[in-house]
């Protein structure tokens, strides 16, 4: 029951977090940049190198932006969402498997939480770099500085997600292993 509740909470956190990224990728939002995802990719992410063919050829730039969204961003979102789900479930499982049986024991496992956080950041950073910049169909099509900014954004976003999901899914037994959580949650 407690495990199911944790999964439910996890979904409640995961859906809006992923949902926001999906919205940026698929929805035409007037308030975001140029108002359309393709226009945004074209204007802010793709290369601004004047010697590159996609800078001079608008049709090619449009197609590249489409590929960036379909092959890059969309795949990235699927993999990141699945990865977030798995890493959070792993934390829930670890909380159960450790079988904390006495006060003061949980804090000794704070290193596990940090290890999971670092794994999350490294994996998400690698995925972002690969899907948006390094994969064959998009190799060096995007502006390096823009992708780097996206990568930093994804790192921050992942860290926020991981911490927030831990707030909701961490068993009370292992709460001390999440930094500041016993100060935030007072039940």
């Amino acid at each position: 029951m407690r495990f199911l509740k944790a999964i439910l909470w996890l979904m409640i956190v995961l859906v809006p977090f992923s949902g926001l990224l999906y919205s940026l990728t698929y929805l035409e939002l007037e308030i975001i940049g140029e108002g359309s995802p393709i226009a945004n990719v074209s204007s802010y992410i793709l290369t601004q190198d004047e010697n590159n063919s996609i800078f001079t050829n608008d049709e090619l730039r449009y197609i590249t932006a489409q590929i960036f969204l379909e092959e890059g961003a969309a795949n990235l979102l699927v993999y990141v969402s699945v990865f977030w789900l798995l890493i959070s479930i792993l934390w829930i499982v670890i909380g159960e498997v450790l079988r904390i049986d006495r006060p003061g024991q949980a804090i000794k496992y704070i290193w596990i939480w940090f290890v999971l956080l670092i794994i999350s950041l490294v994996v998400v950073a690698s995925m972002t770099w690969y899907f948006l910049y390094a994969q064959d169909v998009l190799y060096q099509r995007a502006e390096f500085s823009s992708v780097f900014s996206l990568l930093i954004f994804m790192l921050i976003y992942t860290a926020v997600y991981f911490y927030l999901s831990c707030v909701f899914i961490t068993s009370r037994v292992i709460r001390s292993a999440v930094p500041f959580l016993t100060i935030i949650l007072r039940n």
Binding site: P103, G104, A106, R172, R175, S176, T182, N187
Partner: peptide, 23 residues
Amino acid sequence: EIYYPNLTIDKWRKVKRESWLRN
């Protein structure tokens, strides 16, 4: 074995934020 040793005057602060003790 488990709870009393953590409830003495010199020890309880170490676990004062744990749910069981707080609640």
